[in-house]
């Protein structure tokens, strides 16, 4: 569904990504794991066309993405739920969700139906629907951000650090929602620092270090990889070698 080959990305004259190649198949959940600053979010920003100073080839369902504008990417069904939630703080929860469906250009009645579907899946939002987005707690905001992303009826969802800065109880909630989405057969590319959680949910994963992919494979394989265990799953040397 999504194919990226030899992607290089630049921030002014600093190269952030070096020859990144990855693919996501339909119905698959793929995780990108790696440390802070490794370039995980940059990859997502390239796919959603927020960053355009790139070279390399990117294809979404046989469509070349190299000249695509960011709003056209959303029209194609590439929906990016950004790092740090990025909800609209002064707009109500309802309006946040409504704007999620902007790219669909649907009638208001259809939007209302879709919002109600989101409310069924994420009942927490129904209770807060008239509240300004900025008054929600971090976890609630993350759930709103996911709901808003779903309103765009994504073909592929790019999730950037959904668990960042959340209380453990909300981390479980968020991953619970992701499991639901997985059961519905949604295609997701997820970036996570919480490698443990990410590997639990994903089918495959890529490991990124300083802008390059250093390892890829099925999550079952990666979970048993000694190097991954040591670097990302927080198992100490002694535990591994003893």
């Amino acid at each position: 569904m999504l194919y990226i080959k030899n992607l290089n990305a630049f921030y002014d004259d600093i190269q952030a990504l070096r020859n990144v190649s990855l693919h996501v198949k339909e119905g698959e959940i793929v995780a990108l794991i790696g440390n802070n600053g490794a370039g995980k979010s940059t990859i997502l920003n390239c796919i959603s066309r927020i960053i355009t100073s790139v070279n390399g080839s990117m294809f979404f369902r046989d469509q070349d993405m190299s000249d695509l504008k960011y709003n056209k990417a959303v029209d194609l069904g590439i929906v990016h739920v950004p790092e740090g939630r990025c909800i609209f703080p002064d707009l109500s929860v309802w309006d946040n969700l409504l704007l999620g469906s902007y790219s669909k250009r649907e009638k208001l009645s259809t939007c209302k139906k879709n919002i109600n579907k989101i409310f069924e899946m994420l009942p927490l939002l129904r209770k807060k629907k008239d509240q300004a987005g900025g008054t929600l707690s971090g976890g609630e905001q993350q759930i709103l951000a996911i709901g808003r992303g779903l309103m765009a009826q994504p073909e592929i969802m790019l999730l950037d650090e959904p668990s960042m800065g959340l209380a453990p109880i909300f981390i479980n909630d968020v991953f619970g929602i992701l499991k639901q989405l997985k059961e519905q057969g949604k295609t997701i590319l997820i970036v996570e620092q919480n490698a443990q959680k990410a590997l639990e949910i994903a089918d495959r994963a890529y490991v990124i270090e300083t802008g390059s992919i250093i390892l890829e494979g099925d999550t079952d394989e990666l979970k048993t990889n000694q190097e991954i265990k040591r670097a990302y799953l927080g198992k100490g040397y002694s535990e591994i070698w003893d």
């Binding site: 029209d75 990025c86 707009l91 704007l99």
Partner: peptide, 23 residues
């Protein structure tokens, strides 16, 4: 109006507005 709300969204959080497909 949805256009009015999208303008508010652009003011509120430009990046998020872009990611919603708002031009």
């Amino acid at each position: 109006t949805i256009t009015g709300k999208s303008m508010k969204a652009c003011a509120s959080n430009k990046k998020a507005a872009m990611l919603m497909g708002i031009n």
